[in-house]
Design a protein around this nucleic acid. Structure first.
Lengths: 194, 194
DNA sequence: CTCCTTTGGTATCGAGTCGATACCATTAGG
DNA sequence: CCTAATGGTATCGACTCGATACCAAAGGAG
């Protein structure tokens, strides 16, 4: 890791652009009474499935410590956007639920601004860029021993059923998955391809 | 801006990936006794030209307020990484200079990890991705009334000279530019193409 | 059924970010 | 010359963030 070949210039350019874009986006995420960290937590809770709505999962998703996340959750709870509820099955797990107000605010996610900024390019170019970024994220996560996450549809444990309304299935947790579930983020996600 | 066409799904995907990548990178930027904000400032000061090494320019670059940046500079100064020096020409401008220690630390920028994560892809794909990200950044900056920044070489005021060592020229500030200058970041940057 | 370790979560501390506001110099414009 | 506008700094309050310490529930292994 010490001197192992300097990365090529376009790679450096991508790194700087990602860093810079992230910076500008964060600057724009001081809205609706939330700060960037709180938006990220709220966004996750709005997009994750019912197996992944816990403080621990959020901490892994954000690559932060449990303590940090717990504080951010305190802030969101104080603002009436989320609710902490004990898990019926396990006595130490806490389930995080969006309140009505939380759901409403999540719909006004300022990240949409970034998405519209990307909407200008050609669709195929966009898709290619998304692939590159996804690869980078995966590489970064692998290098740092982080959990990959991802939506159910792209998981190796996902078992799709007949397309006519029948529910899908998770072979790992042995649970039914609705159509919405299949597009939600899961802690247990394990990528399809090697 | 209220209901003007939801962005297409790949655009949303890119936005989420950028946000997420930025998050993971930030998490990895707690190194060398600095925090992410301090790294960003140090990085800028290591890459900007002699017209742009001021607190105000840094604030615009980071899309932050002057006050916030001033505090981060306090931290860097306390750590002996930068030096504040009055401008000889103007009595209210402060020039920011990296100390020897600052330069040494800037060479160990943790952002390199992200660059190596990007190095795995094909070179042409990388270049395309970089283009998309650059377009997004420009769009975002335009939408928020931010200064674009950029390196001299790509500026409309840049006048290259004969390639045999002769210095370049800035038509706006009427100043000589060394080869290194031409690759440095400038506040006055104005993109070439329309 | 006990120990004991692991796991999920929270509280507290200190350094620091960040926007907001207020403020002070210097400079530029009428 | 007087009045903006500009470049910087200080202070405040809410909050992030890692580190550390801590607690209770769960899971083994004997």
């Amino acid at each position: 890791m010490d001197r192992s070949a300097d990365p090529p210039p376009e790679a450096r350019a991508i790194a700087e652009l990602v860093d810079r874009l992230g910076r500008v986006v964060r600057a724009g995420e001081h809205q609706g009474g939330l700060n960037p960290a709180q938006w990220e937590a709220l966004r996750y809770l709005a997009r994750c499935n019912r197996f992944s709505n816990t403080p621990g999962a959020l901490a892994r998703y954000l690559a932060a410590t449990k303590g940090t996340v717990s504080q951010t959750l305190n802030a969101l709870e104080r603002k009436g956007l989320i609710e902490r509820r004990p898990d019926p099955a396990s006595g130490r797990v806490v389930r995080l639920l969006l309140t009505r107000a939380g759901r409403a605010l999540a719909a006004k996610d300022p990240l949409i601004q970034l998405a519209t900024a990307a909407a200008g390019c050609d669709r195929r170019v966009r898709a290619a860029a998304a692939d590159v970024l996804a690869d980078m994220l995966a590489a970064l996560q692998r290098a740092n021993g982080l959990v990959p996450f991802g939506v159910c549809r792209t998981c190796r444990h996902f078992r799709p059923h007949a397309p006519n309304g029948a529910p899908h299935w998770c072979a790992l947790l042995d649970e039914r998955l609705s159509e919405a579930d299949s597009r939600s983020i899961c802690v247990e996600h394990s990528p399809l391809a090697a």
